[in-house]
Design a protein around this nucleic acid. Sequence first.
DNA 1: TTGTAAGCGTTATCAC
DNA 2: GTGATAACGCTTACAA
Lengths: 358, 358
Amino acid sequence: MTGSDERNGTVAPAPGRKARRVKIADIASAAGVHPSTVSRVLRADPRGRISESVAERVREMAKTLGYRPDAVAASLRTGSTQTIGVIVHDIEDPVYPPILRGIEQRLLERGFMTVVGNTGYDPHAEAEMFEQMANRMVDGVILGTTRLQDPVVQRAQELGVPLVSVLRSTEHLECSAVVNDCASGMRELVDAVVAHGHRDIAVIAAPQDLSTARDRLSGLRAGLAAHGLEVPEERLFTVERMDVEAGRRAASTLLERRPDPPQVIMAVNDLVAIGAIQACRARGLRVPDDISITGYNDIPLVDMIDPPLTTVAMNLSEIGMRSADCLLDRLSAPEAEPQLTRVRPELRLRESLATIGR
Amino acid sequence: MTGSDERNGTVAPAPGRKARRVKIADIASAAGVHPSTVSRVLRADPRGRISESVAERVREMAKTLGYRPDAVAASLRTGSTQTIGVIVHDIEDPVYPPILRGIEQRLLERGFMTVVGNTGYDPHAEAEMFEQMANRMVDGVILGTTRLQDPVVQRAQELGVPLVSVLRSTEHLECSAVVNDCASGMRELVDAVVAHGHRDIAVIAAPQDLSTARDRLSGLRAGLAAHGLEVPEERLFTVERMDVEAGRRAASTLLERRPDPPQVIMAVNDLVAIGAIQACRARGLRVPDDISITGYNDIPLVDMIDPPLTTVAMNLSEIGMRSADCLLDRLSAPEAEPQLTRVRPELRLRESLATIGR
DNA sequence: TTGTAAGCGTTATCAC
DNA sequence: GTGATAACGCTTACAA
């Protein structure tokens, strides 16, 4: 029974299906006014002032007839769909859901809907998806798959499609971006690692064509440099994809290569860190007694794994909301200069990082 | 450079912005044919057969001018947006991303886009969201928030909007649904619990207005009955929301109520189970030495927590794909009878379930 | 095989 | 204040 009273007055469509949809013209003739008047009333158009009596009658009629505006027709006329597109690599990657939630929440407040597309890490799919969305279905795009040089960003400029990059940015900030402040997060993490007595540090990084991966590595190096340390060549490894399996393989390689394991493995993200933990265990190392591991992201449940993972928590839903704000700004001011917004993350110290007696 | 050759022939819009968008009429006059001919060529309309020479010329022109079809205009004309809506409670709930991925993947293959909406567990938001989507923006809806009696399902019928329920179903199958086979999953789990020697079993269930919650509880009872067991009133608890916090509170209450803890707590899902683990620990109980815990869902990382959680893995992406298939079927055959599809889950035995010596 | 013309439902811009 | 009218860009009978 909840909410059913909201539909009071709605004429149930005759059981003989497919009741023709009520349109503005129907309301107009029922209320004895012109369609344009109805339109003005329903959109509360501030220009054409309508007498309250007519407005009342029209609203009444609209409700009685069960009028539902046709968003497609309105879009064709106005050139705006009140919809924005979000492109992500893989919605199962735990960084995306909180971002999407932030985006969606903010957009909904402003009357926008959100269409989502997965690329499955395929640049071709990404381009294709963008084209589809750009074909007038969306008013703008939030790109969560941005590479340092990204053809999609360029294409968006060609087409004049408002675009904001989220989570990553392009090399020369060709478009506005809202990112995590990876460098500062990494520095805090490095400070903690060093403060725990670690000196022999191995790193599992990711391909440097992603700004996140690059910022994390450079932040890490900067942090170490501040302590007079560095990452020797043979302690630096790279994964192609940032998942558990890749982390496991990289850590295995890492542990094979030298007889003595490092004191700590700093992974480019939590999934890779988890893979590293598994690889260490597989070789009989205890974590964190024999070797410490750090991640990045603080994805759900990493505080519950064994051992709880030391990591850096991005403020993902905030990043999402900011990117939505940013896109909405661009819709109203398309010519504005691209802006880079950095959202600060927070260090999460947990048991996977042990203190080393010196 | 990848893929840029695909845009060969595209005339870069003059730097003097806002190049008017190329439309079918432009191609028509450029190619010296009628717009309708262009339309037929571009949609590869099988009826109006076009001479290959004209077709060739038109395609050529379209490419040269950088034509991009206007999806909105086409939708207004055809009445189809090639878009479907998915409504979920909270995209951060880990059950949804794999489902969305399955849905999106399948729909994309068939040329559909996916718009997603979060309700935040608010029935009013759910109804609102459905109305928005139904206002001609989508060809159909996949509902992931279905309650046993769901006004949205009824509303979809009124409006003639094709709708498929995913993950849950309505009481009397008013619409097609693709669900996990909760009952059979629970039975398998109960068999395992009993086989491990447990007899004193506490249950944290969820409100029975969700079909999943109901099916799990009835499956659990049926499973126990098969072993001549039951859940006494004082061992049955209910959480309002299925998250960690609620699980923690329920388990605390449970442990307070009787001096002796049960041998095992079977939680309605993994998050609740994790809350239960935390509550047990907070009261000084070791898991699984002093008390066993089981979950349901096998969300990411529950195999990595301490202790690894015994649970049941739904086949979520398959559920997603099937629901997409089901919706597409309904688009072509709207009058078909509602179908219930059950997808079988798999038991995941892990350390959180200990063997009890008898 | 191709052209003609009539919309799809809405809103913007005029007039009155 | 309200009405008339013309698009928005595309598709599709129907004609030729």
